[in-house]
Design a protein around this nucleic acid. Structure first.
Lengths: 327, 327
DNA sequence: ACGATTACTGTGAGCGCTCACATGCCTAGC
DNA sequence: GCTAGGCATGTGAGCGCTCACAGTAATCGT
């Protein structure tokens, strides 16, 4: 920086002003400085800047299972929203779901002097752990959100599951089976709750429940068990990947979809519309969620009072995999 | 840090030594310092450390289309390998494929003082742009790699495409149709080359070629065009997502897979084995690629001579979507 | 024509750490 | 008993930037 200053014939402070777009620098001087910067290939040293300003301009995000559709969409959306707000977003992904690995990830981010933390980990323990953190920075949850929680943005999983289940009940099915996700995920539990709630509201007994792990393979295994039960005419599967496995199991056993059995998924992955048959599913507004989470973060950063959780509404996408109950 | 030093009754330098695991500090003193750190909730200021050491311990990665399977797998693998080597990995994703957006992403990373750059962008221009960069840091390519290139790790797309095509020719098909990816992706071109090469080697004429954009929707559109051609008994599709669309188009037109027509995909996404029928496809060793790219990066960081590109071999996974040519 | 304002630019300290070096202490060797 | 050498610790400078403040020159009003 001194080099630039000398070359442009000004003081280091003037160079600093040019770099920070200060309005109090003469156009002519600015041009000289800019030219010197260009010529010398100068880049401002961010570490020094951070040290002097006591700010990092960085927001930390911790996420898990980035290979899955939902988490990866959320991470992308948060990152983009952060960039737009002029922040750098550091993403650390958890190798596994342990308290230990979470706190190591947070540690890592704290070392980078992040000014806020967005936690998108669907494990119920995530809430407690992050709450127990003794740091003054704002923490926003973007997954595994329960209603009424403060500083959190989520998608209403219960509402989505109710919509999916009701869609099937409306078609005349008397009960709906359910393939759950791993129940240590907040979302998996909430989708299961919604499925039960929809039955309760109509005074119906829910169909059988099988637990999966989000993977197509687990859906396939679940499907094979459901095939054995002839009373099952409708299945609500907790995500699209597992629904794919369920569809395959039904195909293999000659059960036609939707003639013999209807299937609904969750997530609306890009592939879902091209399954055979095209999958009725629940679309989640991930991009919106990312933006909302970032809004909350920025508000907190500006010292606004703690906002309450926002729950966004997912939306049913009816396709060919669901039809009236067989008579 | 001074606070800690005072509290522990030592000098700031001793605290620094404890923080850096220096062996020249007495066990007793170390314990005192550690206690003071714990009590005061002290965290070392990384910005100051970077400023003093002139090192950032950070590797930059630029990637595009993180929603797609391949790119996201590569990014995850690189990040993990970097962490294991004690580096922080900053990932910036490109909103689009322009030279401008690439150089902005690189700028962003250079601002963070990254010590090396991993570029995983499949666009041919990426190579030129990064090469033209006037920075002394090592740059490693992890996608869009052509053989013989230096400082790059890639997966041999041509070999994969040859394997896929030959698998079909071996089954007695006299020619294979091809659904390409967007041809401004290096990988899409290379898979197309491999498809042609396999035909040439057997002195056969390749079947029709349709261009897609990686999405299931584009695969579906391509499938509808291929259905119209009764001579098409085998299709090599440049990725699994498009293959899904192709399968659906065939289903809709009553063409049985694999009895009437065989389909091969590329990528081996987790869903592929559960398509209907299960999709024969080409598995790419993404995790290995990520590790390899990081190895190259670390070598370059240690000042080793420029290594030549590594090309990893993908592997055909034969499943039920391919069968003998109809007689 | 003078001080009061405005517009721009310069000065020096300090952010929190590590580096190179200086110092003090203890043990071993003769 | 004295010194050479190793171990443990302390000292001060400086990394590259921004902040608060102190100039200096040009402009204005009366």
């Amino acid at each position: 920086m001194t080099d630039v200053a000398v070359y442009a014939g000004v003081s280091h402070q003037t160079v600093s002003r040019v770099l920070n777009d200060s309005p109090l620098v003469k156009e002519e001087t600015r041009a000289k400085v800019l030219a010197a910067i260009e010529l010398l290939g100068y880049r401002r040293n961010n570490a020094a800047r951070m040290l002097a300003t006591q700010r990092s301009g960085r927001i930390g995000m911790v996420s898990a299972h980035l290979i899955l559709h939902g988490p990866s969409r959320i991470a992308t959306a948060v990152q983009e929203a952060g960039h737009q707000a002029g922040y750098e977003v550091s993403l650390v992904s958890l190798p596994e779901f342990s308290a230990d690995s979470l706190s190591r990830a947070v540690d890592r981010l704290l070392d980078e002097a992040v000014e806020a933390l967005v936690v998108a980990v669907a494990h119920p323990a995530a809430r407690e752990i992050t709450r127990a953190l003794r740091t003054p920075i704002p923490i926003v949850l973007a997954q595994g959100v329960v209603p009424g929680q403060s500083m959190a943005a989520g998608i209403d999983q219960v509402a989505g599951a109710v919509a999916a289940t009701e869609h099937l009940l409306d078609l005349g099915h008397t009960h709906v089976a359910h393939v759950t996700g791993p129940l240590d995920w907040v979302e998996a539990g909430q989708r299961r709750d919604g499925w039960q709630l929809a039955h309760e509201r109509r005074h119906l007994l829910p169909g059988p429940e099988v637990t999966g792990d989000w993977s197509p393979a687990s859906g396939y295994a679940a499907g094979q068990r459901l095939v054995a039960d002839p009373s099952v005419t409708a299945v609500f599967v907790a995500n699209d990947d597992m629904a794919l496995g369920v569809l395959r199991a039904f195909h293999e056993h000659g059960r036609r979809v939707p003639d013999d059995v209807s299937v609904v998924g969750f997530d609306d992955i890009p592939e879902a519309a091209y399954f055979w048959p095209p999958l009725t599913t629940v679309n989640q507004p991930f991009s919106l969620l990312g933006r909302r989470a970032m809004e909350l973060t920025l508000q907190a950063l500006e010292g606004e009072s703690e906002a309450v959780a926002t729950l966004l509404l997912p939306e049913l996408r009816a396709r060919a995999s669901t039809g009236p109950a067989p008579s």
